[in-house]
């Protein structure tokens, strides 16, 4: 019987930890939607959501409430099981990836050896939510949107993968905590600045954000793969999308901006806890995401594919060779 108590104990502790991570993430996803709309509005000299609560902070909660009480309409000719599973998969995958994000040196849910591969794998699984949703709707526009989106995500994953290899060459470990600790002298954004820019743009494409939001290009495809969704199922797609954006920001700040490390290890910066630094960096990246959405017009699809395969992929490959050569020549390769 001891065994069962042991397992139950483990189960409760882990569940507690997971809730401790998940609930703040869900709340911050709601807040980030507000921030996104607010930044967007300020760029366009509007006010944005400012009515519900102080500064309109509760707008997202009000929206969520509305989504919950709306009727879920399932099209008669849709493939019902897959139609219902698709948004669940999108949201689950977006949340599951947070398990490996380190908020401090020992402040991580699962400190696994292949953390970065896990992140990469989970974000590459994200395609399925979209494909399944688009296919199961059994309608033209969602299907076209899903195919566009899947092709886009698969092609930008390639360049993200090579950028990750660039960083891993400098670190010598796949563990996210090790990646952050390797940046104690200087952040990787300094030596790998072009890679950071390419990572950022690829992250925009990977999360279907403007200017690469072709899957949801409303003038061409109504709302892309989300066209047939309504109520809470639509909200789940939406939450998953924003959780993914936050995740990409977290990934960018861990790979390039030194994760939880303060910019300089001196007195006033030391006082702020590491988790807050990470949150600052995520917010900084997210505000740039939001600004890009407000400023840049949408790409054409063939231009998008050209950018991914003919510019980013060769450039990051060449940079990979340069990085490897530099590290080898100056004997800087990390001891594994």
């Amino acid at each position: 019987m001891d065994n069962i108590y042991y397992y139950l104990n483990v189960l409760f502790v882990e569940t507690y930890k997971i809730l401790f991570l998940l609930i703040p993430i869900l709340v911050s996803v709601a807040m980030i939607v507000w921030l996104d709309r607010r930044v967007w509005a300020f760029v366009q000299k509007r006010r944005g959501p400012n009515v519900v609560g102080p500064f309109g902070l509760f707008q997202s909660l009000a929206d969520a409430l509305k989504y919950i009480f709306k009727e879920i309409i399932i099209p008669a000719s849709s493939n019902k099981v897959i139609f219902i599973i698709a948004p669940i998969i999108t949201m689950t995958l977006a949340l599951v990836a947070w398990a490996v994000i380190p908020f401090g040196e020992d402040f991580v849910l699962a400190n696994i050896n292949v953390g970065i591969l896990y992140l990469f794998a989970v974000s590459s699984l994200g395609v399925y939510g979209i494909i399944m949703g688009g296919w199961a709707s059994n309608s033209k526009y969602p299907f076209l949107g899903a195919i566009r989106s899947a092709a886009q995500m698969v092609s930008y994953e390639v360049s993200i993968g090579i950028i990750i290899i660039n960083v891993l060459l400098c670190v010598g470990s796949l563990n996210l905590t090790d990646i952050v600790l390797a940046q104690q002298q200087f952040w990787f954004v300094l030596p790998l600045f072009p890679m950071f820019i390419i990572f950022f743009i690829s992250a925009l494409a990977e999360t279907n954000r403007p200017p690469f939001d072709l899957p949801e290009a409303e003038a061409e495809l109504v709302a892309g793969y989300q066209t047939e969704y309504s109520g809470m199922m639509y909200a789940m797609f939406w939450l998953g999308e924003y959780a993914n954006i936050l995740l990409m920001c977290a990934m960018g700040s861990i790979l390039f901006l030194g994760g939880w490390l303060p910019p300089i290890e001196i007195y006033p910066f030391n006082l702020i806890p590491g988790a807050l630094w990470l949150i600052f960096k995520i917010l900084f990246l997210f505000i740039i995401f939001a600004l890009v959405k407000a400023i840049v017009p949408r790409y054409r699809y063939d231009q998008l594919m050209r950018l991914g395969w003919k510019i980013f992929l060769p450039f990051s490959l060449v940079w990979l060779i340069l990085t490897a050569t530099y590290l080898y020549y100056f004997n800087l390769l990390p001891s594994v």
Binding site: I112, N113, V114, L117, Y118, F120, A121, S124, L125, V127, I131, W135, A150, V154, E157, G161, L174
Partner: peptide
């Protein structure tokens, strides 16, 4: 764990998408 993750990335993330 490396094989498992690479299996996810390569087969599920890329090959099966093309299948689909």
């Amino acid at each position: 764990e490396f094989l498992g993750m690479v299996m996810l990335i390569v087969y599920v993330g890329a090959v099966a998408v093309l299948f689909l």
